[in-house]
């Protein structure tokens, strides 16, 4: 009796809501923005008001519009980087784990090298040599970020592939003579789905951080609006020290919220992969009403005295009892 339900904990639902909200913002943000983010025709340094929900910059741009428009570039680049990095880590991880031998040694060494090199400094060096017109290209930036973000996923996927390699269904596919790449990508890969999903969430999370950071230190084109460039202009105009919190807080909070949403979703995947993390049994409220301790202490199995509660029909089908 294996329960293959995705855990529907409040954490996961909250994560889905947050991520869903920002996906909508990515799609519709630019159309919803009341003004052009470049429009400098407003009075500078306005505090938030009904006309300018997040106030204006010292150049007289509407910060609310910038935040809405900036969502798209930020999330699209992160998504490109996340997808490419996950694809890379999948190919490297599965190949290393499945083929083994020298292939494994070489690929493992490669991913370990990329793990050991600190990602951001490498990114900065590469990016600082990029021609200026490439820096405004989301695809180029996304690819460069993915180059520094694939190694961790590859390591995890490799480990999981190795444990799958000797399972019956893989063995069977090999025996009936399926081609190696078919076994790897049609037999092994589907079973890595939870890990791939988790790896995608992580790399997207990493990519948002990396992209925003690059933009913040002025290494992406300042003509592309994203949350990082907003912070770049805010910092450049000394907004933090002159008390213009409304300039840098909105993009910062957006970044943190997207990240939180992704991390919360990942909790769900974690609980799916590692059943020990799943909360056992009832909510705190239900436990209280049954007179059980709020949490169970190891080594003091609780006693319920309503022995007559024995159910006539099963309510939980997913309950696996091991003895």
């Amino acid at each position: 009796m294996k329960s293959i339900r995705f855990p529907r904990s409040p954490k996961v639902i909250l994560g889905l809501c947050i991520v869903g909200f920002f996906v909508l913002l990515t799609i519709f943000g630019p159309y919803l923005a009341p003004y052009s983010p470049d429009n400098t025709s407003f009075a500078p340094n306005l505090t938030p008001s009904a006309h300018h929900w997040f106030g204006t910059t010292s150049l007289g741009q509407d910060i609310f519009s910038q935040t809405l428009v900036g969502a798209r570039a930020t999330i699209v680049v992160a998504l490109i980087a996340g997808l490419v990095a996950t694809l890379l880590s999948m190919v490297v991880g599965i190949a290393a784990g499945y083929v083994g031998g020298f292939t494994d040694d070489g690929l493992s060494m490669l991913s370990n090298v990329f793990l050991a090199i600190p990602g951001l400094p490498l990114l900065i060096v590469i990016d600082s040599y990029l021609p200026v017109n490439s820096r405004s290209n989301s695809l180029v930036i996304g690819l460069v970020i993915s180059l520094t973000g694939w190694a961790w996923g590859a390591r995890v996927i490799r480990a999981q592939t190795m444990s799958l390699r000797n399972r019956d269904f893989v063995e069977a596919a090999r025996i009936i003579g399926e081609k190696r790449y078919r076994v790897m990508f049609f037999e092994v890969a589907p079973n890595l789905l939870p890990i791939l999903a988790s790896s995608l969430l992580f790399t997207v999370l990493y990519s948002i951080g990396a992209y925003v950071t690059l933009a913040y230190i002025g290494l992406t084109s300042t003509s592309v609006w994203n949350w990082g460039t907003m912070l770049f202009w805010a910092q450049g105009n000394n907004a933090p020290l002159s008390g213009e919190w409304y300039w840098f807080v909105p993009p910062g909070i957006c970044i943190a919220l997207v990240g939180t949403g992704l991390a919360l979703l990942n909790f769900g995947i974690d609980e799916f992969i590692n059943p020990r993390l799943r909360a056992a049994g009832l909510s705190a409220k239900q436990r209280r009403s049954l007179g059980l301790p709020r949490r169970q202490r190891l080594g003091l199995t609780p006693v319920v005295h309503s022995a007559s509660q024995r159910p006539s029909t099963p309510a939980i089908a997913s309950n696996t009892v091991s003895t």
Binding site: G281, L282, Q286, R287, L290, L292, V304, Q309, R310, P311, P314, A315, I316, N319, V321
Partner: peptide, 10 residues
């Protein structure tokens, strides 16, 4: 029992 209340199995 494993579980409580309605979800309990003996």
């Amino acid at each position: 029992d494993y579980g409580w209340g309605d979800g309990a199995v003996r």
